[in-house]
């Protein structure tokens, strides 16, 4: 069974069906792209996977070494505890907190002391806080954020804020990472940097990634399989070259290549 399997997933808001009858699967270790025009329902699908919305019908199953868990309809923090982590299309960092605190908050679910220990500062409290700090520093090292650990998140440059969101998601120790338009608003250099980062985290953390993206060069370059969504329906899926030549996808999203069009005319 694949790591994540989505079956006949539907979400309607009143009369509008934002996601309709979607089937998809993600195998362990894959890097999957999810593309589609604006308003196609990509972010709604993300919100369904991460528990922000409850599905109208359908199921989302996560398979952790034979341990199958239904994710549809459970709370976002329970989804995170099961091993899914996400970033947001419009950055949602804890802006007035430091880089270190942003990461430590994401590690809270694995904290090993209870509230009374915190109130009365037991030895366990100090041990756990030390462990947390060491782990956070390790993460910051990997993503070269160490020199900014005491900066407020809002004072980081845009590219680094996007970066920090990924690091924060990594701090929850996920098995599946969901990235919502990670390259939005980035210049080509920053996008290249991001591509490297994604490759690096897959290798170092043995991670499965699902990403929404509009930057076709990024998607075609790094994604192993691609799903295409339009009007809430999955209109195509497959390898990048298959999707690129799919007629429906070209019509609804990619558009015809100018050179192709001129060839046809002549």
């Amino acid at each position: 069974m694949p790591l994540l399997s989505v079956e006949r997933l539907t979400k309607s808001f009143g009369g509008l069906t934002a996601v309709s009858n979607v089937n998809m699967y993600i195998d362990k270790g894959e890097l999957i792209g999810l593309i589609g025009p604006n308003g196609a329902g990509k972010t709604t699908l993300f919100n369904l996977l991460t528990g922000v919305y409850t599905p109208t019908t359908g199921s989302i199953k996560l398979d952790l070494n034979g341990n199958i868990k239904e994710l549809g309809g459970i709370k976002p923090y329970d989804v995170t505890a099961s091993g899914l982590a996400r970033t947001f299309q419009n950055i949602r960092l804890f802006k007035d907190l430091t880089v270190l605190d942003n990461i430590r908050i994401a590690m809270h679910k694995n904290i090993g002391y209870k509230m009374p220990s915190a109130l009365f500062r037991s030895n366990k409290f100090y041990e756990e806080e030390d462990r947390l700090k060491i782990e956070a520093e390790k993460l910051m090292d990997i993503f070269s954020l160490t020199h900014k650990k005491n900066e407020l998140a809002k004072n980081l440059p845009y590219g680094e804020q996007r970066h920090l969101e990924i690091v924060r998601a990594m701090a929850t120790k996920p098995v599946l990472l969901l990235l919502d338009e990670p390259a939005a608003g980035m210049n080509p250099n920053e996008t290249a940097e991001l591509t490297k980062t994604i490759a690096k985290i897959r290798k170092e953390f043995d991670l499965t990634v699902l990403l929404i993206e509009h930057d076709m060069s990024l998607v075609m370059k790094i994604c192993e399989r691609i799903y295409v969504l339009n009007y809430g329906m999955m209109i195509a899926s497959g390898l990048p070259q298959e999707v690129r030549s799919n007629k429906k996808v070209i019509e609804s999203y990619l558009g015809e290549d100018l050179s192709d069009a001129s060839n046809k005319k002549s």
Binding site: V52, P76, A85, F88, R92, M107, M115, A118, L119, E129
Partner: peptide, 30 residues
């Protein structure tokens, strides 16, 4: 005691709710 609470992981979880409730939930804070 309140100062100790604020400066613990539980306190940081509370502060994260003030900063951004949706993000806090997505980071595993109940």
């Amino acid at each position: 005691l309140i100062n100790n609470f604020i400066r613990s992981s539980h306190g940081r979880a509370c502060i994260s709710i003030r900063e951004d409730e949706i993000a806090a939930e997505s980071m595993g804070v109940n």
